[in-house]
Design a protein around this nucleic acid. Sequence first.
DNA 1: CGATATCTTGAGGAATCTCAATACTAGTGG
DNA 2: CCACTAGTATTGAGATTCCTCAAGATATCG
Lengths: 243, 243
Amino acid sequence: MPPFDLARPARATADVSPCGACAVRPLTVCAALDEDEIQRLAEITQSQRVAAHHTLFSEGDTAQNMYNVTSGSVKLYKLLPDGRRQITGFLFSGDFLGLSVDARYAYTAETVTATTVCRFPRRQMDSLLDEFPKLQRRLFSLASNELAAAQDQMLLLGRKTAREKIASFLLSLSERAVRRGQKSNPIQVPMSRSDIADYLGLTTETVSRTFTQLRTHAAIRLLEGGRVDICDETALMEMTESG
Amino acid sequence: MPPFDLARPARATADVSPCGACAVRPLTVCAALDEDEIQRLAEITQSQRVAAHHTLFSEGDTAQNMYNVTSGSVKLYKLLPDGRRQITGFLFSGDFLGLSVDARYAYTAETVTATTVCRFPRRQMDSLLDEFPKLQRRLFSLASNELAAAQDQMLLLGRKTAREKIASFLLSLSERAVRRGQKSNPIQVPMSRSDIADYLGLTTETVSRTFTQLRTHAAIRLLEGGRVDICDETALMEMTESG
DNA sequence: CGATATCTTGAGGAATCTCAATACTAGTGG
DNA sequence: CCACTAGTATTGAGATTCCTCAAGATATCG
């Protein structure tokens, strides 16, 4: 996939405050800030549209920006030298990315569908963090949340069967859809079988077979447009073995 | 394992500043603070000795404390309802634990060997965080580091073979030993085969077989006291497939 | 509407797990 | 100090899940 051309980013539409009308604001890092502070943040923010299957940044790049997804979907992944891939997370509107330990990104971020992000230059973000302890706190709590999610994912990867993995994955997508105000039932599954496989530590074939199996057991229905209807949520929940 | 009796914690020895003589201070969260601030932290700190195989806290407990390991070793794990276990991390001296998203711990913490920890009541810690932005920053960077480590572990769990997992595990133990000022070569491996298995997403038998295999290939030697001599570090590094 | 990628299904194989027996280790009490 | 015991580790044989390779079906996009 060609890397997205960062040299010509789409400027945020020059509204008085582009963040004022932001639909995902209550979901995201910005929820911590009042109007004045949002304004300050808006000044360093650039909104950017990215087509599907484009790289936002790559593992090892110097971490110059942080991002907030305002629409679309993004995957984060790490590679082994021989090409094996582990997707560490999928991001949707409201999700934040770009935390980095040292000065480099620890993973590659690639759009799954057409996506819009808010881009925050890291340096300026850092000064804002000093200025607004609330923002710092918010980011910290965000990192803690991600850490908890990462631990759940370790449990899934290390100890769950293929069927449990798929069931957990579908329920988690449903739950996250609800959290951003969408309905829980027919869920959007915008990523490919191969992406799902690399997220769950499986192969595409096993993912496909397991979907078929769940469909046969009338737990799910595969709809057009990559949507999945969860017919029997209870059955799926029993399959996750985690309540 | 019986939970450790928190009703009778061992008081920190009433030194002028117990932290003043702390050997792991430069390694840990306290490194961020100057003398006065350390003093303030010391006031809310209790040092505590815990025997091997005791629980510090359990998944789901209300998160009342944060801890810093000053000696010994601790494992963190999550359980599935049927008893399957995933160890999400091992902690050694200098390591911090007890971050929690909501008010509850997301995992169980259990000592592997006899351990001493510094215990910080969460509520008081929270006010210190407000008071010392440096401490807040430090904790944030700590969480970011853990997040990066968690992503590495996902790659391991989802995409590496048993042999690669064991090799990565041993090298990581070695590296961490160096970071806390110990020598890299014969490494202490205080945890049981079963713990290693639950950390790497394997069974005890596979862990044991893989150790034997590495020994046969003259990459490692198993010494008494649970120590492991890394004879051929290069071979191990090649096995990790991650450089 | 054709080309291409993605998804599904099948058959066989491999890595790892399960079950079971034996060996070792460390701690306990005589 | 030694033997005993209980836990832990190793090894073996067979089972199973998931993977690999391969073909066919379906969807997507120009």
